[in-house]
Write a protein that binds this DNA or RNA. Structure first.
Lengths: 365, 365
DNA sequence: TTGAAAGCGCTAACAG
DNA sequence: CTGTTAGCGCTTTCAA
């Protein structure tokens, strides 16, 4: 039976007094702190993990000394070791289509703010609107054993669904009301939102309307919105066939500029153009200004998302405002409850949280 | 001396055939795979980590069988355990001011694309333009033992600098040419870029120019740009005092709209407005359209960043185009070399990589 | 090329 | 409240 010495041997390669390898240099460990203070590792561990109000003043003083020593020695807990030992990674994995889309990054903000108080870190990935990239990322993230997963939308490869099932952690799909959810959902009906927008436009007198978006195969959410356009138009006994699909998601401002030109060419009498999101709506608006088509008199334009640019441009663009941050926050709160349940060996029944949206009619219509 | 049985006992709590705790359910481990194939854990480990071209066909066949078994059993390596054992987290920490700023998220794209081939994952955090948030995040991220750190800009708390020093991993500051860099730098002189823009405007005949940005204390990068404006104006023997600072970074479109109104009020004869970034420049442009101030005839407007909106609006906004993606890519490549050196116990001498920028004069000037 | 043993830094579980 | 013991799942090291 061998005995470990309380202090690990240090073995940094040293040449003429200079450490060759600061990167490989051992970090200060809990054992070092324990040795210095003259207690066991466990006492240090407890001092670090102790929540606020505690009992005896002698204990408090000791914990104070320990924390002081940690600071002096530059000790930083090794979350890897902690994870390994406790089976809690402290990670929440989140996947969004793109970083530079403020809708989704706002959702990440909401998610982060909701979970950080519980000491959870968000491990973020972006899929570039591609299911296979999503699957690849998911595979990579799951090796980090996240305690929960937040996805955007409901379109995933079968393999991705299997991975999630096998991971056995709570899963939340956001932004869409998924038909066949993996587990929990926080979102709204994109179809219904566009339908409501169309009905508002109808009430304002618009009749000949067109829809512009990306090709449906590349963008499930955009396809939902398009369906909403179609069903609302049909419901109003209007021509629902004026639909132009160009390019892959995310549909850009430049796409919108091109799109409006094509729409006007194909359907010269169109009165209103509903765009799949604010970016192409803005591009369309600018193209109209370039060509001297008065907005909204010659053509009305509407977008989706409630982005900054839609509110800042002139005229302001009518849109469907979505509270992106609250989607993330709601997902975070739901996830916290699910993780809490999981830690106690329970499983939270699947929930669906409805996120609000609001049609905002502005100068462009 | 005790012997471990090769197969761990499973201990999921089970009630009437239903696992109560799928989240707590043990994952398939390497030992399980090894037992199934009838080899040792090490052989499985080697099969998983083996790079392409290998020797004997018998070995290759065995490795094939092992990989097959992994797939069948749904085995996923536990990166936590791997990190713990190998001292390589496979993480690169990256901190940017905000997610929803396409400049910085593009840089993250570049960084990710550069490092992912080496199996490194980017652990991303956003600081909300706040040094203390940065320090807090850094502290949290360092518990994950990243193999390298990429920061935005050169303004950090002293404590943050100490943390980085103590971490002993390569550090890269991006976007700015930092005066006193922590280690490596990938960026450009924001001051020089704005100065060049000003000189271009001067060549076009503009003389009475103003600068609009956030308050300098909240935004080191903006302050650099402002300095560039001042020095260029002085160099051209022009009045460099027309500077309006409003609000904290990030300066918004709405700030720009307000700003241009104030500028026109204070200096009614101003000919050109240089904005700290494209967002306020766009807001200013729209405000001018709202008020009927012709751009560029009554007032010319320029931005900074080369964003999509500056190129899509009408008139297009003159700007300083920055190749944000290549900043990230260059940082990633540099980091790979530094990490490689660190793994071999070496330390890469501090490097500075200059990122290119280009003044783009467009319709707004 | 393969296997056996040891241990990374921490926390769970139990004993004092 | 504190300490001791025993791993977590993998890779490193060394021996076969």
């Amino acid at each position: 039976m061998k005995k470990k010495s309380p202090v690990r041997p240090r073995s940094a390669v040293t040449v003429s007094g200079q450490s060759l390898s600061p990167a490989a240099l051992r970090h200060v460990t809990m054992a070092d702190v324990a040795a210095k203070v003259g207690v066991s590792k466990m006492t240090v561990s407890r001092a670090l993990n102790r929540s606020e109000g505690s009992g005896r003043s002698a204990t408090l003083a000791l914990h104070e000394r320990i924390l002081q020593a940690c600071k002096e020695m530059g000790y930083v807990v090794d979350q890897t070791a902690r994870t390994f030992s406790s089976k809690r990674s402290g990670f929440v994995a989140a996947l969004i289509p793109a970083l530079n889309n403020s809708n989704f990054s706002d959702t990440v903000h909401g998610l982060t703010s909701a979970v950080e108080a519980s000491g959870l870190q968000v491990l973020l990935g972006y899929t570039d609107n591609d299911q296979h990239t999503e699957e690849r990322l998911l595979r990579a993230m799951l090796t980090r054993r996240p305690e929960g997963v937040v996805l955007t939308g409901g379109s995933h490869t079968p393999a991705a669904r299997n991975l999630l099932k096998a991971a056995g952690v709570p899963v939340i799909e956001t932004w869409d009301l998924v038909a066949d959810p993996i587990e929990h959902t926080v979102g709204f009906s994109n179809a219904e939102a566009v339908a409501e927008l169309v009905r508002h436009l109808h009430a304002k007198g618009y009749r000949r309307m067109a829809f512009f978006g990306g090709v449906p195969e590349s963008d499930a959410r955009g396809a939902d919105r398009r369906r909403g356009f179609e069903s609302a138009m049909k419901g109003l006994c209007l021509d629902a066939s004026r639909i132009l699909s160009v390019g892959r998601a995310p549909v850009s401002m430049a796409d919108g500029a091109q799109g409006v030109a094509q729409v006007m060419l194909r359907w010269p009498d169109v009165q209103a153009l509903v765009c799949v999101s604010d970016h192409p709506a803005f591009g369309a608006l600018m193209e109209c200004q370039r060509r001297g088509w008065a907005v909204p008199d010659r053509l009305a334009i509407a977008g989706f998302g409630g982005s900054e640019v839609a509110a800042s441009c002139h005229p302001q663009i009518s849109t469907v405002a979505v509270d992106c941050v609250s989607i993330g926050r709601a997902a975070g709160q739901l996830l916290l409850r699910a993780i809490d349940a999981a830690r106690q060996g329970q499983r939270l029944p699947a929930e669906t949280v409805l996120a609000p949206f609001r049609v905002e009619l502005r100068g462009s219509t």
